[in-house]
Simulated assay, not measured.
Amino acid sequence: MKKVQPLKNGSEADNYLYQGIARPIVDICETILSHKEVFRPKKIKFYIHQNLDVNASAKKMPKSLKNFFSDNHYLIEINQGAILFIHRTILDFFHNKNFMPKVKSEDDVDISWLSSNLSLYKNIPANRQRIEYAGNITILSSIIFFYHEMAHVLRGHLDYIGENYSMSMLAMDDEYDLRINNIIKALEADADYQAGEFLGIMFNREKELFYKVLEINNDLDFFKKATMAARFSFQLLDNKFKSKKYHLPHTRFEVFLEGLLNKINIDQDKALEIATGLFIGMEKACNTFGYRSHRQPAEIEEDGEQYRSLTAHLLYQLESELNFYRQKK
């Protein structure tokens, strides 16, 4: 089974999406997984799936494959649909020339090679610099998805849920069992925080790889792109799914940022200045370019308070149970 498979056959669009985005994602994730000491006793495999649904997931290898895999084998998958969704939406966002990265009008080029092969990209005026920049943000968004799903494995979330709650219980209406909903939301918040920590840890370890793939030459540039990727991803996914099993994108971003700053070796004052400016700038840009959040300010404030009180307290209560599943061999 290939780690990643082409979307189309032989087109220029396929070559760009495969070599420019999917392949670097796999290379980074495979390098991350090579640090086996981080994952013991868990064993994790990673694939980019051809499915065009917008989704990423972590799951335990099914018992039907127990002859090939041990009880500690897990699979993380990112659908190509999720990668395309982020990249296409970011390109759409970048088409306004007043938003970064700034380019001269004469730099605009025809991207019919992309839009003619993939209907998702029709009617998006862009240029190669923005295409490449959007590609970098998409790669980092996918890495954040990967770390988020990896946290579900390493933090014991999958085993805890699998042994304590049935799929029918998880599918219940949110109001039917508020505790289950709150537990899921708490585990998702924990995964957001851990995704930030994992990204910081692995950037410190594999800085040259990140520099090469993302075409950057300093740590603050990486931080800027990473925070932009997180902010974009959380906002776009909330706009698309409006799921009640996650905190709102503002809260998710703050939780992720706290984890990232806790581990990354970087000038904290400059990083916070960048994050604050980026958050305000992107909020204004989102509103200006039609990506206004469907959430009201009062709802956003209430969600942040819910995280600081209910979610954080619930995670503290679950810690001993989750620790049992983390150490389970």
Rank of each mutant, 00 (worst) to 15 (best):
D71P: 08
L187N: 04
S116Y: 09
K104P: 02
I21V: 15
K104D: 10
L220C: 01
Q5V: 14
M282V: 04
Q268M: 09
E175L: 11
K8N: 10
A230H: 03
E37K: 10
I28R: 05
N79W: 02
A285P: 07
R130L: 07
R88Y: 02
K42I: 00
E299Q: 14
S64R: 03
V109G: 01
Y16T: 14
D190L: 02
F68A: 03
N217S: 06
N265Y: 08
Y121P: 06
P101K: 06
L314R: 09
H73C: 04
Y121A: 04
R295G: 01
A285Y: 11
D174K: 15
D190F: 00
E206H: 07
N218G: 02
K225V: 03
H157L: 08
E273N: 14
R128N: 13
D174Q: 13
I300E: 13
M61D: 08
A230W: 00
L52N: 09
Q5R: 14
I28G: 04
D219L: 00
K263P: 01
K43C: 06
D190V: 00
M61A: 12
K244R: 10
Y147K: 09
K63L: 00
E175R: 14
V103R: 12
E215W: 05
K45I: 07
Y47V: 13
Q235C: 02
Y147F: 15
E305F: 08
Y133S: 14
E215N: 15
M172H: 05
L65E: 03
L170G: 08
F46N: 11
I83T: 02
D190P: 00
A171T: 11
I124R: 07
M228F: 05
Q50A: 12
F324Q: 03
A191M: 04
F93Q: 11
I184H: 03
L17V: 09
I266F: 04
L178G: 04
M167K: 12
F93S: 13
I266P: 02
K270P: 00
I216S: 03
N136T: 10
K63D: 11
S309R: 13
D221E: 11
F203W: 01
F68L: 01
D174L: 14
I124A: 05
